[in-house]
């Protein structure tokens, strides 16, 4: 079986000419189905850029990105949107929930774009909320929820479509240690029991410990790639 994700010599250059800046410099990476990868590195090391490219939000300046043998770098903007819609789930540092919109509706949002019926959206959203331990909180708006609860809603929103990969960009960046550990436990559970591949950017070594594999970025390339646990 071929790898879920394969990066070959990915480069990303911002700006032009003298002012140009190489954020990624020939990155090679392979991620198998069911892995839990923590991407670490100092600011400006290119980890966020790598994450954006992995998440199909951005396109590389050079190199090849194969997602399930599909050349993502050749896809149009709309084709990448469809890829995100069907295979990817996103969790952001700032939660990025729609304000003044109930948790339930936030979770239903991705299903709306998949054209699912009201009935199906309700059921799926409730199941996803239950999965992240927020059963019965559906009618609350983000402003009425704690940071940890908001991040759980965001995870539920990412989960509701049964994604192949969950991309988490500093998911615990705005949370205290206790809540952070709860969120990490949740992600670990999803990875081990649901078989969802998790890619996470973090700068906290404690949080990276939850992952099966830790990749360090320095100056736009991979510095170290350490496997901690085998993929089950």
């Amino acid at each position: 079986m071929s790898a879920l994700i394969e990066l070959r010599g990915i480069t990303k250059i911002y700006g032009q000419g003298q002012a140009s800046f190489k954020a990624l410099d020939g990155v090679d990476m392979t991620i198998e189905q069911g892995d839990f990868v923590a991407i670490m590195g100092p600011s400006g090391s290119g980890k966020s850029t790598a994450m954006n490219i992995l998440g199909c939000l951005d396109v590389p300046s050079g190199g090849e990105y194969l997602f399930r043998d599909v050349h993502v770098e050749q896809l149009s903007r709309n084709e990448r949107a469809l890829l995100r819609r069907h295979y990817l789930g996103f969790v952001f540092q700032g939660f990025n929930l729609l304000a003044r919109t109930s948790a339930q509706e936030n979770v239903e949002l991705p299903l709306l774009y998949r054209g699912e019926s009201t009935e199906a959206r309700h059921t799926a959203a409730q199941a996803a909320l239950k999965q992240v331990g927020l059963e019965g909180w559906g009618h609350h708006t983000p402003a009425e929820l704690s940071g940890g609860q908001q991040q759980r809603v965001a995870i539920a929103r990412a989960l509701v479509t049964n994604p192949t990969i969950l991309l988490a960009d500093e998911p615990t960046g705005n949370l205290d240690t206790k809540t952070s550990n709860e969120i990490m436990a949740l992600l670990t559970d999803l990875n081990e029991n649901k078989g969802i591949t998790v890619l996470m950017v973090t700068h906290e070594p404690d949080m990276a410990e939850y992952a099966k594999r830790i990749i360090h970025f320095v100056d736009g390339n991979i510095d170290s790639d350490v496997r901690k646990r085998e993929i089950t």
């Binding site: 998440g55 939000l57 903007r77 709309n78 949107a81 469809l82 890829l83 995100r84 819609r85 069907h86 990817l88 996103f90 990025n96 929930l97 729609l98 304000a99 949002l109 991705p110 774009y113 998949r114 929103r157």
Partner: peptide, 14 residues
């Protein structure tokens, strides 16, 4: 931001 979220979770341009 709302538009960003919608685009990220897979909303098409149209």
């Amino acid at each position: 931001r709302e538009i960003g979220i919608r685009l990220a979770i897979g909303a098409l341009e149209r």
